[in-house]
Write a protein that binds this DNA or RNA. Structure first.
Length: 282
DNA sequence: GCGACAG
DNA sequence: ATCTTGTCGC
């Protein structure tokens, strides 16, 4: 079961096209019709910043109920994708599952409009960079909290396949510290069948997994979904299991790979390079 | 009044 | 994430 490359921009636009002249709808009704009312805040932002052309069809404030169009015909893509995340989460391996840990990789993406520049870097534990690869592609999925993997996984995976074999991949995004226990790092780990560690600057769910409303069974008794890591007095980093590694080992490795800044070196390197690639091509 | 959301 | 120079501060 591979993760589909969904064109959600087209899905949203086809909903907007269904709104008759003189009628309006709301981010909440759009999100519900896409299959997840929790996505309403994201839909609101997307209408404001990305799909401005149809912005007049959407109102934030309450209007007379009869004005609001809600009879959308939709195949509920977000509902389908959320179910996919749930089923994927059941395949996560939260134990160390690797032979050796010599070659670390980090992958990150930078955006300019709908163009995404991704870079994957391989380095030794000594921080010596061995290899790099980059790609440029087009995104068809907006950023929606909880569905980030459907925006970024395609380019991340494509780029990570261009470099030689490595033992572990650092990913910029949560692993199982996700509402459905399937963040970007977990998705990439499962799809490429490699050990991955999820790194994020903000938490998506409470550390004890309280908000893992759909997948509590993945967290044994009092275990945490992620560990808050503080290097010096910098802003914290949230580390979670992506795939084929334990949280304990993940934290140990992340600490070991901290060099400068507040990201483990493979990620920091990939982040800088992705940004540089993005700036360069213009 | 509560909650506020990875990149 | 991105729009954005130099600059104030931990």
């Amino acid at each position: 079961m591979r993760v589909p490359e969904v064109d959600l921009y087209t899905a949203i636009n086809s909903l907007l096209d269904q709104i008759p002249e003189g009628r309006v709808s709301t981010p909440y009704h759009l999100a519900s019709s896409l299959g997840d009312s929790d996505a309403a805040p994201s839909i609101s932002r997307i209408m404001r910043n990305e799909l401005r052309k149809n912005r007049h069809k959407i109102v934030e404030n309450l209007v007379p109920e009869t004005k609001i169009f809600r009879d959308f015909s939709s195949d509920m893509p977000l509902k389908r994708l959320a179910e996919l995340q749930l089923s994927m989460s059941k395949r996560v391996i939260q134990e160390d599952d690797f032979k050796e840990l010599n070659r670390f990789a980090g992958v990150d993406a930078a955006y300019r409009g709908y163009e995404v520049y991704a870079v994957c870097v391989i380095m030794e534990r000594s921080f010596k960079i061995l290899e790099k690869a980059s790609t440029v592609s087009t995104v068809h999925f907006p950023y929606i909290s909880g569905y980030f993997m459907f925006r970024e996984a395609p380019s991340i995976e494509r780029t990570s396949k261009l470099v030689s074999e490595f033992d572990l991949l650092f990913v910029n995004g949560h692993g199982i510290a996700h509402p459905r226990c399937c963040g970007l790092a977990t998705c990439v780990g499962l799809e490429l069948d490699i050990p991955t560690i999820g790194i994020a600057r903000r938490r998506l769910v409470s550390s004890n997994g309280e908000k893992h409303y759909d997948c509590k069974s993945l967290l044994r008794d009092g275990a945490s979904a992620c560990t808050e890591l503080r290097t010096d007095s910098r802003s914290p980093l949230y580390v979670s299991v992506g795939h084929r590694i334990s949280l304990e080992t993940s934290v140990k490795i992340v600490n070991e790979m901290m060099l400068k800044g507040n990201l483990p070196e493979p990620l920091r390197s990939a982040h800088i390079d992705a940004r540089r690639e993005m700036k360069k091509i213009r």
